[in-house]
């Protein structure tokens, strides 16, 4: 009994949670404005799209791969769709998501063929796809930014779940788009925990050959993962466009680094086979907290890249040392 309690207190999720609590206390002590409900709203707005990306990245990493093409896919599909929408004058949210999703699936299929069928290294294959998608967006679709989103689609960015007013009288509103990552998280949690498919993802991440011999169809599972990743990347891109009320061909580029960091800090092992939804959420919260509040603590802007990098190195270092420790400890 005591043993299991102790185990629960030293899991990776717990360590990340302690870090978050300590960090919030430090930020709050240095700047009391942090302890306000509005912080939750600002943070969840900042985390929203990262969460969508982090969930797909987590599933891909659990399966033993990696995907760095999602920002490019997200940009391409949301930007291409908004161009179609503006040219044809279609003002429909469902259409926006569906067409972008289809484009995302197309790139997902490309990734799936390269990685699952031809067995190319996932990092290099997705880097290539990323370059193709990003180059195609900028070269063939243009570099202009559009802020004239049609009114019906735009209305989604102005629908809120609830609002609160802080002491200075500024109204903070929780956007209803936050429901997308929440629903996604629940679905992925159930998928990973309670379906044969989900257990198969862990199995092929742990040992591909063992999984194949155990009867999992490795190619099919990998294909579905990368196609799903492409689709969800597009969903993330569309959500970002609506949230920012602006379509840009490359404002998401470069976010892959942060997302991978968040996933790994959350305890997902980059070598595959391990990872939980809760850990990923905590990892995203931690990274978002660091990114958004370094200024509140008084760290100047030009030091931020370094500090974020340091935190990632420490986070991954701790995860790896723990993994090494577990591997070396006595097996029962």
């Amino acid at each position: 009994m005591r043993n299991s309690f102790k185990k629960k207190c030293t899991t990776n999720e717990a360590i990340v949670a302690y870090t978050i609590i300590v960090l919030s206390l430090v930020i709050g002590l240095m700047n009391p404005a942090f302890f306000d409900f509005s912080t939750v709203i600002t943070l969840s707005r900042a985390m929203l799209v990262t969460l969508i990306f982090a969930v797909i990245e987590m599933v891909v990493i659990i399966s033993g791969g990696i995907d760095v093409s999602f920002p490019a896919i997200a940009c391409f599909s949301s930007y291409a769709t908004i161009r179609i929408i503006l040219v044809c004058g279609i003002d429909n949210i469902f259409f926006f998501y569906a067409i972008a999703g289809l484009m995302g699936i197309f790139f997902g299929v490309l990734n799936a063929v390269l990685i699952a069928k031809l067995h190319l290294p996932a990092l290099i294959a997705t880097l290539g796809v990323s370059s193709v998608a990003n180059g195609a967006t900028l070269a063939f679709l243009g570099t202009e930014e559009y802020s004239n989103i049609p009114s019906h689609i735009d209305s989604l960015s102005k629908s809120f779940l609830f609002a609160c007013t802080n002491s200075n009288g500024i109204v903070y509103q929780m956007t209803s788009l936050v429901l997308i990552p929440i629903v996604l998280l629940i679905i992925v949690y159930l998928l990973l925990k309670f379906t044969t498919f989900g257990r198969g993802i862990y199995a092929i991440g742990g040992d591909k050959n063992a999984a194949r011999i155990a009867g999992f169809n490795v190619t099919r599972i990998q294909s579905i993962i990368y196609m799903g990743a492409g689709f969800l990347a597009a969903v993330g891109g569309v959500t970002y466009t609506i949230l920012m009320r602006q379509a840009s061909p490359q404002n998401l580029m470069g976010s892959e680094m942060m997302v991978i960091a968040a996933v790994v800090v959350g305890g997902t092992r980059i070598t595959g086979g391990h990872g939980t939804v809760l850990g990923t959420v905590l990892g995203v919260v931690l990274i978002a907290l660091v990114q958004n509040n370094l200024i509140m603590v008084g760290i100047p802007a030009h030091l931020q890249t370094f500090v974020v990098g340091l935190i990632i190195v420490l986070g991954t270092g701790i995860t790896s040392i723990r993994a090494k420790h577990i591997a070396n400890s006595a097996k029962v």
Binding site: M257, I260, H302, L303, F306, V313, K324
Partner: peptide
């Protein structure tokens, strides 16, 4: 030594070294 995969280390390294450079030049 720590057996962190090279891909992750160097990806973090890119961020870290760029950040250090940015801290020196301030932009």
């Amino acid at each position: 030594y720590l057996k962190i995969p090279a891909m992750l280390v160097t990806l973090c390294g890119l961020q870290l070294y760029t950040g250090l450079g940015l801290a020196i030049t301030r932009g």
